[in-house]
């Protein structure tokens, strides 16, 4: 069983990021004036989440690739 936990974390935060930033682009600016000191926090924080999610995904995918390389290089001498 090797689910790399960085994979679901990366995916979830990427989805969150896209949803929030997307909503930030189309939402009524009035809600930001009312709540968040006029800052479009959905867009800004959505991009932060997306960056974090993408970084996690990148690390997870690189780890998976290097594991795959280890397995093939270990097999070669015997085969």
């Amino acid at each position: 069983m090797d689910l790399d936990v960085r994979l679901p974390i990366g995916l979830m935060f990427s989805v969150f990021g896209v949803l929030l930033a997307g909503f930030g682009l189309v939402s009524d600016p009035g809600i930001y004036a009312e709540h968040s000191l006029g800052i479009n926090v959905n867009l800004d924080w959505g991009l932060v989440l997306l960056a974090f999610g993408a970084a996690m995904l990148l690390v997870a995918l690189r780890a998976r690739r290097s594991r795959a390389r280890d397995v093939t290089s270990r097999r070669r001498p015997g085969s």
Binding site: S27, V41, L49
Partner: peptide, 11 residues
Amino acid sequence: AHYFPSGLLGL
């Protein structure tokens, strides 16, 4: 409820 608009509020 005060600082988060819909969207961030869900988060």
